[in-house]
Simulated assay, not measured.
Amino acid sequence: MYPLHLALCLTAALAAAGAFVAAPAAAQSSPNENAVPETAALSAQVGAWTVVDTFWAHPGSAPSLSSGLIADRRMVGSLLEETLHAEDSRQPLRIDYLSYDAVAGQWRYVSIEARVPVAPMSASSFTRDPADRITLRFEPFAAPPIAPGWSGRLLRMEQVITRDGPDHETKDQFFILADGTATRWLAHRYDYRRRR
């Protein structure tokens, strides 16, 4: 069971991202009544995935590689829930939710990180991106003190999810630090491969 504060943070983050709260059982629609192609595309991602995380602390810096990560994905209503953990542990390193808002015509995303001291982060697409290439923009937030020169600076972040088939996906995270240079760089690449 996750700690209570994590559950409270998740509830607040989902509300901030515009995710729905389930209605009482009598008022809920049937699973296929409001189905959209984007939800079907999310459902196809259910299962376990092997993940390699590559991190670049600054533009041009040497990459740091983290392997042995597993992403377990399941559908929670119309949201794709992903729990990232080490292969030898069930302790969550990150929990995130991705959904498509058919009314607004945009993708919505919420991420809760356990590895770095940041609040729950929400993001959305600007347009109705295709399900195989989704660009999500986050609200600016204070950069965590995980690399020299980061602490106390505002951080802008964009995540591009690219699927090149049913068994491979990348999540590229581009950062811009408020350091006067407005330099955008690829800071994180999560490489996903479906486990068989």
Rank of each mutant, 00 (worst) to 15 (best):
Phe55Glu: 07
Tyr192Pro: 05
His85Trp: 02
Phe141Asp: 04
Ser124Val: 14
Ala16Lys: 13
Ala187Ser: 06
Asp179Trp: 09
Ala40Asn: 12
Thr170Tyr: 06
His5Ala: 08
Asp96His: 10
Ile161Arg: 07
Ala16Met: 14
Tyr2Met: 11
Ala16Gln: 04
Ser66Gln: 04
Thr83Cys: 11
Asp167Ala: 13
Ser78Ile: 07
Phe126Arg: 15
Leu84Asn: 02
Arg196Met: 09
Asn34Gln: 14
Pro148Asn: 06
Gly105Pro: 14
Ala35Ile: 07
Val103Thr: 01
Phe138Asn: 03
Ser43Met: 08
Ile146Asp: 10
Met157Ala: 11
Leu93Pro: 08
Tyr97Leu: 04
Gly18Ala: 04
Thr170Lys: 10
Phe174Ser: 14
Phe175Ala: 04
Pro92Phe: 00
Gly180Glu: 03
Phe175Asn: 05
Gln159Val: 09
Arg163Ile: 04
Ser151Lys: 07
Phe174Glu: 07
Gln173Gly: 08
Arg163Ser: 10
Ser61Met: 10
Leu155Lys: 06
Trp185Met: 07
Gly180Val: 03
Glu158Arg: 11
Tyr97Lys: 01
Trp150Asn: 12
Trp107Phe: 07
Asp172Arg: 07
Thr39His: 00
Pro140Tyr: 03
Pro144Tyr: 08
Asp53Lys: 13
Ser67Cys: 05
Gln173Met: 14
Val110Gly: 00
Leu6Lys: 14
Ala143Glu: 00
Ser124Asn: 14
Ala19Met: 14
Ala114Asn: 15
Trp185Lys: 02
Arg73Pro: 01
Ser151Asp: 15
Met75Leu: 07
Ser67Pro: 01
Pro37Cys: 01
Glu87Asp: 03
Ala44Ile: 07
Trp49Met: 00
Gln173Leu: 13
Ala114Met: 08
Phe126Tyr: 11
Asp129Cys: 10
Asp164Cys: 09
Val51Asp: 01
Met121Phe: 06
Pro148Thr: 06
Arg163Tyr: 05
Val21His: 09
Ser66Thr: 04
Met121Glu: 09
Arg128Ala: 15
Pro3Cys: 12
Leu186His: 13
Ser111Glu: 15
Arg128Ser: 15
Ser99Lys: 01
Gly68Thr: 05
Pro145Thr: 07
Arg153Met: 12
Ser124Gly: 11
Pro120Gly: 06
Ala27Cys: 10
Phe20Thr: 06
Ala44His: 09
Ser78Gln: 10
Glu38Thr: 10
Trp49Glu: 01
Pro120Trp: 11
Arg73Tyr: 00
Ala147Ser: 13
Val110Thr: 02
Val21Asn: 09
Asp53Arg: 15
Phe174Trp: 12
Arg194Tyr: 06
Arg153Cys: 02
Ser125Val: 10
Val160Ala: 10
Ala187Asp: 05
Pro120Glu: 15
Thr162Glu: 09
Arg156Glu: 15
Val160Trp: 02
Phe126Met: 13
Glu82Cys: 06
Arg94Asn: 14
Tyr192Ala: 11
Gln173His: 13
Asp132Pro: 04
Gly18Phe: 01
Asp88Thr: 05
Ser30Thr: 02
Thr54Gly: 02
Phe174Ala: 08
Asp72His: 07
Thr39Glu: 00
Trp150Gly: 12
Ser64Met: 15
Arg189Cys: 01
